[in-house]
Structures are given as structure tokens and as C-alpha cells.
């Protein structure tokens, strides 16, 4: 294939990465923004979403679409409830102390990951996409008689991949509407802006925290349900989304939702395109160094957007 069509393909793949990443990272960002908690176990909530999607598909059988639709509801609910339980039994009792919660979520990471290993096993398990029609994509060529459209071999995508992008965008829009238009969003923003003041105004801060932690985890789980038909479920699959979400949240400005989405698109796209030119390991080295350096020299994020 020539470079042009190749880059088009990389951009498309990049958009899929970006949309799933944006969803996962917005969950992490929400938790950090409102609760000031750095959730190291976020990647494991993502992994649980994928594993639950596989389980639901196995149990229901029948057409893949049935299992998929069910998983899209069940996985975030289950994972969200688990997160709420973790918040109430662990984080609340640590009084949301930033350093101690990090240590506790590291413990939570190993607990979730290892329990999954014990029950689900070490194999990677595939999930069928609900629909998967191939779409060939056209490319243009300069011929003797001017431009003409061609259909290069290998240049194409599937309806499911396009669906992932659309679904993620819709979910992100829903999060934005929730934060800006609903009462619960208002309460969350009030808690984020000033915890003491929110308490003084009688906002049930502890319940808001539990809810935010649940929503954050639920978003990660939903992102995983969307991606699992393309990627397979595995008990170690949480590491990469965690790292990438960190990168996105820190570059986008800690706790800033619009910044997070912009950074996710940037990282998702460049991830696809960079890996055309560099090895994936080198790309990851550069990305981790970037996060470290941004935190050291520009802690407000590259875009400098401070709040929601």
C-alpha cells in the first residue's frame, strides 16, 4: 500500500483508540477533579468491563448483539457498584488523603487483577461484535486522465468500528450534559470547586464522592465493552489504558474534562500514526517521558485549561 491510504487507515484506527481512550480518561479525570483521588485501579475497572462483557455474552448465547447490548448495561452497573463499595469501605475511611488513597488503590489493583486471574484464567478470550460488515474505502489516484477513485486492497473498515466512534462520542456528550445541565452535575461541580463550602451548604459530599467514583469506574467499563469485540478480554489488559489515561489526563490538565477529550484525540491519533514510523516501545517511552516532564514543568497541562 502507498503511504497516503496507509495514513488514512492509521487515522481511522487512531480515532477508535482516541474515542475509547477519551471515555476511559474522562472517568479518571472526573474522579481526580471532584475527589482529588488518583485512582491507580482505574485500568482494572476497564479490564473488569471487558471480562464481564465476555461472561454476559457466554451466558446469554444467541445472537452476539443480544449479549453486547446486555453487557453495555450490565458491565458499567456491576463495575460501578463495585467501585462504590470500594469507595465506602476503603477510600472514605482514609478520609480521601491523597497519598494513602494512592497506596490503597494500588492494593485494589492487585486484588481485582489477581481475583480475575483466579476466576477468569490467564487466557485471552474473544467477544463477537454485534454486527461487522466490511466497508471498503476509496482512494484517489493521479492517472493519465486526471483524478480517479480506486479501491485499494486492504483499505477498509467495519461498521462496528465506526459504531465505536459514534457511541463513544454520544456517551461523552451525555457526560457533558450530565455535568452542565443536571442537578447532580451541579452538585458535583460545587463539590469540586470547594469541598468545605459544599459541606456548609448541606451537599451530601460523601454520597457525591461515592457516586463520582462509581461513574468514573462505569465509564471505564463501558469503554472496555465497546473495545472488547476488537481486542479480546485478558486479565492484564488494564495496564495500557491506565497509562494512556494518565498521559491524557495530565496533558489535558488535571481535572479538566474538555482538556481531557482534546488530549485523548491528540494521543489516540498520534499513537496510530507514530506507530507507523516508530516501534510501539519507543512511542511508549516518549509518552511516559512526556507525562513526567509535563508534570515537572507545566503542571497545569499543555493546554492550560484549569477547570471544567
Amino acid at each position: 500500500m502507498e503511504l497516503g491510504p496507509y495514513i488514512l487507515l492509521a487515522t481511522l484506527e487512531g480515532m477508535i483508540t482516541a474515542s475509547v481512550l477519551a471515555l476511559t480518561a474522562v472517568g479518571l479525570s472526573l474522579v481526580f477533579g471532584v475527589m482529588r483521588v488518583v485512582n491507580i485501579a482505574h485500568g482494572e475497572f476497564f479490564m473488569l468491563g471487558a471480562v464481564i462483557a465476555w461472561c454476559v455474552a457466554q451466558m446469554l448465547g444467541g445472537h452476539p448483539a443480544v449479549g453486547f447490548a446486555a453487557a453495555l448495561v450490565i458491565a458499567p452497573l456491576l463495575v460501578g457498584s463495585l467501585a462504590i463499595a470500594a469507595d465506602m469501605t476503603i477510600l472514605k475511611r482514609l478520609d480521601y488523603d491523597p497519598e494513602r488513597t494512592i497506596v490503597a488503590t494500588i492494593g485494589l489493583l492487585y486484588i481485582i487483577q489477581q481475583l480475575t486471574l483466579m476466576s477468569f484464567g490467564p487466557e485471552a478470550r474473544p467477544v463477537q461484535p454485534p454486527f461487522n460488515t466490511r466497508i471498503a474505502l476509496p482512494w484517489f489516484e493521479m492517472g493519465a486522465d486526471g483524478f480517479k477513485l480506486i479501491w485499494p486492497w486492504g483499505l477498509g473498515t467495519t461498521t462496528y468500528k465506526l459504531f465505536v466512534i459514534v457511541a463513544a462520542a454520544a456517551l461523552l456528550l451525555a457526560v457533558r450534559l450530565m455535568m452542565t445541565r443536571t442537578k447532580i452535575g451541579l452538585l458535583m461541580r460545587a463539590t469540586q470547586a470547594d469541598r468545605e463550602m459544599a459541606l456548609a451548604f448541606g451537599i451530601p459530599v460523601e454520597r457525591i464522592y461515592a457516586l463520582v467514583f462509581g461513574i468514573g469506574a462505569g465509564l471505564a467499563a463501558m469503554a472496555a465493552v465497546l473495545i472488547v469485540p476488537i481486542q479480546q478480554a485478558h486479565y492484564l489488559m488494564g495496564a495500557d489504558p491506565l497509562l494512556l489515561s494518565f498521559i491524557v489526563v495530565i496533558i489535558g490538565g488535571l481535572g479538566s474534562l474538555p482538556g481531557t477529550v482534546v488530549a485523548a484525540i491528540l494521543i489516540g491519533l498520534s499513537d496510530g500514526i507514530i506507530s507507523v514510523f516508530f516501534s510501539p516501545t519507543l512511542a511508549k517511552i516518549l509518552a511516559t517521558l512526556l507525562v513526567g516532564l509535563v508534570l515537572v514543568f507545566r503542571p497545569q497541562g499543555l493546554f492550560g485549561i484549569r477547570s471544567v
Partner: peptide
């Protein structure tokens, strides 16, 4: 590593 996680928490 489950043990490590539980002990940490």
C-alpha cells in the same frame, strides 16, 4: 500478588 494487594489495603 493477591496477598500483596490485600496486605496493602
Amino acid at each position: 500478588m493477591l496477598i500483596a494487594g490485600v496486605v496493602l489495603v
